[in-house]
Computed example of a mutant assay.
Amino acid sequence: MQSKHRFVLDEPEVPFELTVLYEDTNIIVVDKPHFLATTPRGMWYRQTALVRLRERLGEPQITPAHRLDRLTAGVVLFVRNPELRGAYQMLFQNHQVKKTYECLAPAKSIVRPQTGTVERLDSPSVFPLKRRSHIVKHRGRLQAYEIPGAVNAETVIELGETDGNIAAPGYRRYILRPKTGKTHQLRVHMNSLGLPIKGDDLYPEITQPDYTDFSNPLQLVARSMSFIDPVSHDPRTFVSQVPLG
């Protein structure tokens, strides 16, 4: 039988470990490093979280309940019991998963976006704020972009705690709470405010990546994920340990 994924012979090895945060008979929760794709796509096959898990555990039936961009690190949920795949995927489709992201972006005043709205949630303070817009992403086009239209993307953005562990002058931590899940939503929303995420190779401008260079990761981490388990009905919370900066 022909494999559904093609094998890649010259695939660069991602030199970061995939850490398992939790596992039981139904699910596996991992802390995905930067540069590791969630599933096979394009030039990536073995250097993906899915294939690493399947090979490590000898369980070819493992499947993701959702995905993170290759350049985004953090918490990812996999389902090891195929019969329960739909139950866990529906958590994400029905927006029943509370997700928090953390990023590094410029420590400066925001700019007015060209479209959409910005609502200050604790006026007159700028943050926290709610960014709402209409985001589109076309196949074959690397960047997503915003156009006038009915809102389909919403993110609450807060200032993160400042500490001495960030070796990036001119940057600070931001906490991002997406209410929707459009492709590149957080990167697009931050860029639209004049605060592009550190290490972003698509926003505001596309830069040609060197797939063998792992020295400048996108400073965006899916920091935490919380939901009610659809099988056990227990509350679940998982937190990424991937550092920023």
Rank of each mutant, 00 (worst) to 15 (best):
I175F: 06
I175W: 01
I175R: 15
P178H: 07
P178M: 06
K179M: 09
K179A: 04
T180V: 06
G181E: 07
K182N: 11
Q185K: 05
L186K: 11
R187A: 00
R187H: 05
V188L: 07
H189L: 02
N191H: 12
N191F: 05
S192W: 02
L193D: 01
G194S: 11
P196C: 02
P196E: 01
I197A: 01
I197Y: 07
G199T: 08
D200R: 14
D201W: 04
Y203A: 00
Y203E: 00
Y203G: 00
E205H: 07
T207K: 11
D210L: 01
Y211R: 02
Y211S: 02
Y211D: 12
T212M: 01
T212D: 14
F214K: 00
S215C: 08
S215G: 07
N216L: 10
L218R: 04
L218K: 04
Q219G: 08
V221L: 10
A222Y: 03
R223L: 13
S224P: 12
M225N: 09
M225C: 13
F227M: 12
F227A: 06
F227E: 02
I228S: 07
I228F: 13
I228W: 11
D229E: 10
V231P: 07
V231F: 10
S232A: 14
S232W: 01
D234H: 14
D234S: 14
D234T: 13
D234I: 04
P235D: 01
R236S: 06
V239R: 07
S240V: 09
V242N: 05
P243G: 10
P243L: 13
P243I: 13
